[in-house]
Every structure is written in structure tokens, then in C-alpha cells.
């Protein structure tokens, strides 16, 4: 099992590399693999290999496609890890950071800033993501506080139900805002569907740091996550302080989701699907699930972004629409298809 899983993770790593190379290369201008190699080598090592590639291709690749593809990969990976955390602590395979209300809360914040035309010069372009981040966190804190008030052990179904109710309520407010402030309708819808358009290297670096911290944090907790898969009481009997651990994980999942979506807008389904795919590949042991889900999430998001910007080129479809269009039937096949076989 252990050797098999190591091999499987290496294969997924290879697939990740292929997807990233494709995302670097495909677009209005095709950048072949050898050119990609020389461009990267030149940028990294000041190789002096300018003769091996076209200057315009280098500009397109390093300033537009690379940050975009890498950010998509990192956002997908981050959301997948947040999904693993949420599903494990809530012991619910249908849970995701969406269930906690993070995404809808972030959308509400962004929508409010848009319709009220709030402007804080010191924050500049970061106002919208910062607002989304704060309201996403506030929403999940509200969900957790309300769940805690009802049930001091913060049982899974309490949080899931509370999260669903709050999400629905918040989504209704967003719809209302879009209808009442019709001139901002397009902007609100765009944010709720997400996009990687126009993203820069600093976005990549922020997400890279967040994901690295997230992977380490989650790997440290892999045993507790394993134990919690058997239910709260079982985990407590094994020696896990479940209430404390669940609080830590919920805050972690909210933070990671907030950071992941705050630059791009909310993008659904990857956080729900990637953990399932990972478990199908490497089993239930979180030591393997965490790493695998990160790469699967990255692959899914990077592919979805590639599809979103190429399938109707030069027009671009919001990436959230692509993940939902592919993700919904895929999830039905993955979850219910396997169950009906049993």
C-alpha cells in the first residue's frame, strides 16, 4: 500500500507537470515545450539563450501565462486541502468550505464593496479581495459561534446544517443586491464565478506561501484527521481533543479558503471533488490524501482555467462556470455511480 501510494503520488506529480506545461504553452499564441524550457532557463539562470525563443513568446509566457497557470494550480491545491480538512472534521463527504459559508460570505463582502462603491485609497486594488476575505471569515465565525451556541461539542451535522442555512441566506442577499443595483450586476456575477485573468507573480508568491504552510499544518494533523473519520466520540476515546482540534481546523480551512478565493472570486466544486478523487486514488489515510488532494485540486483548477480561456477564445468563460459545468456531472458519477455499484 505504502509503496503503491508513493508511486501513485509520483504519477500525479508528473501529470501536474504536464498540465502546467500545457497551460504555459496553449493560448492565442502557441509556445512549444523547447521554447518554454529556454525561456525559463534564461529567466532563472541568465543563460543568454535569447536566440532560442521569440521575445514576444517570452513576454506572454512570463508575464501572463505562467503567473495565471501557477496561481490556478495553487488556488486549486489550497481549496482541495481546505476541502479535505472540512470533509474530515465534519465527517461528511459532501462538505466543503462552501458548506461553512466562507465563499458566500466572501462574495457578500465583495458585492457590498461594489454596490456601495466603497473606496479606501490605501488598499487600492486589494480592497475587494480584502473585503471578501474579512466577510468570508466573519461568516464562518458566525456559523461556528451559532453552532457552538446550539451544541457545545460542535457536532458535525450542526455545523453542516448551520453553514447551509447561513450560505443560503447570504446568497439570497447577494441576489437581492444584484437586482437592486442593476448597474453592478455584471461585476457581482463575475466575482461570484471567479477568474484568473490578469493575475501577477505577487499573487502566486502569496498563495505559494499559504499553501506550503497549509500542507505542513495539515500533515502535522494527519493522525487526528484519520481518527476523526470514525466519528467524534470514537476519536475522543482514542485520545483526540476533538472540540479543540475541530475549532483549529475550521479556522484553518476558513483562512485557507479566504486566501485562495480572495484574489480570484469564488470558484466552486474543486474543494468538493479533489478530496474524493484523492481518496479514490490513495485510500483514506490522510498522510497520502493531503498531498494527493493538493495536486489533484491543482490539476483540476489549472485544466478548468485552460478550458475557460481557450474553448471560446478570444472570449473567456468564468472559471467557476467551467468547474461547475464539469464538476457537477463528474461528482454525480464519482459519488453516486460508485455507490450504486455497491
Amino acid at each position: 500500500m505504502k509503496k503503491n501510494n508513493t508511486l501513485k503520488i509520483l504519477i500525479i506529480l508528473f501529470v501536474s507537470l504536464v498540465v502546467i506545461i500545457l497551460a504555459f504553452g496553449i493560448g492565442s499564441v502557441f509556445v512549444p515545450l523547447n521554447e518554454q524550457f529556454w525561456i525559463i532557463a534564461d529567466r532563472l539562470f541568465k543563460h543568454g539563450a535569447e536566440g532560442n525563443y521569440q521575445a514576444t513568446n517570452a513576454t506572454i509566457m512570463t508575464t501572463i501565462r505562467m503567473p495565471r497557470a501557477l496561481l490556478a494550480f495553487l488556488v486549486g491545491g489550497g481549496l482541495a486541502i481546505a476541502g479535505v480538512s472540512t470533509q474530515s472534521i465534519l465527517q461528511n463527504p459532501l462538505a466543503s468550505p462552501y458548506t461553512l459559508g466562507v465563499s458566500s460570505g466572501a462574495s457578500l463582502g465583495a458585492s457590498l464593496i461594489t454596490v456601495l462603491e466603497i473606496s479606501i485609497p490605501a488598499l487600492g486594488v486589494f480592497l475587494l479581495p480584502a473585503g471578501g476575505f474579512v466577510t468570508g471569515l466573519l461568516t464562518v465565525l458566525f456559523v461556528m459561534a451559532a453552532s457552538y451556541r446550539i451544541d457545545r461539542n460542535v457536532k458535525s451535522h450542526t455545523v453542516v446544517l448551520m453553514g447551509m442555512v447561513v450560505s443560503m441566506f447570504v446568497n439570497a442577499i447577494i441576489t437581492l443586491l444584484a437586482v437592486l443595483f442593476i448597474k453592478h450586476e455584471h461585476h457581482i456575477i463575475s466575482w461570484t464565478l471567479g477568474s484568473f485573468n490578469g493575475k501577477r507573480w505577487y499573487h502566486v508568491l502569496i498563495l505559494l506561501a499559504a499553501d506550503l504552510i497549509a500542507i505542513i499544518f495539515m500533515l502535522r494533523a494527519h493522525r487526528e484527521l484519520d481518527a476523526l473519520s470514525f466519528g467524534d466520540e470514537h476519536a475522543r476515546a482514542l485520545g483526540v481533543d476533538t472540540a479543540k482540534f475541530k475549532w483549529q481546523q475550521l479556522i484553518f480551512a476558513a483562512l485557507l479558503t479566504g486566501i485562495s478565493v480572495c484574489f480570484t472570486g469564488t470558484i466552486g466544486f474543486v474543494d468538493l471533488i479533489a478530496p474524493h478523487v484523492a481518496r479514490k486514488i490513495v485510500g483514506a489515510n490522510h498522510k497520502y490524501v493531503i498531498i494527493t488532494a493538493f495536486f489533484v485540486g491543482g490539476i483540476l483548477m489549472c485544466t478548468a482555467d485552460l478550458v475557460s480561456r481557450t474553448i471560446l477564445a478570444p472570449r473567456e468563460i468564468p472559471v467557476g462556470a467551467v468547474t461547475a459545468l464539469i464538476g457537477a456531472p463528474f461528482f454525480v458519477w464519482l459519488y453516486f455511480g460508485q455507490r450504486s455499484k455497491k
Binding site: 470514525f230 485520545g239 485510500g283
Partner: peptide, 27 residues
């Protein structure tokens, strides 16, 4: 001090028998 075999055991994800028994050593 105390271990418990509960009446209502359920696993939400598919661990192997060996992995499940190993979890007993969590402490």
C-alpha cells in the same frame, strides 16, 4: 486509562483493517 468499544461505530472513509487497528496506538 480508558478505551471504549462503542455500540455505534461507523467509518466515513475507507481505511484498511490494518490502518484501523493501528489507530489504536494514537495515544
Amino acid at each position: 486509562k480508558i478505551s471504549l468499544l462503542s455500540q455505534m461505530n461507523s467509518a466515513y472513509f475507507s481505511f484498511s483493517v490494518y490502518e484501523t487497528v493501528k489507530m489504536g496506538r494514537y495515544r
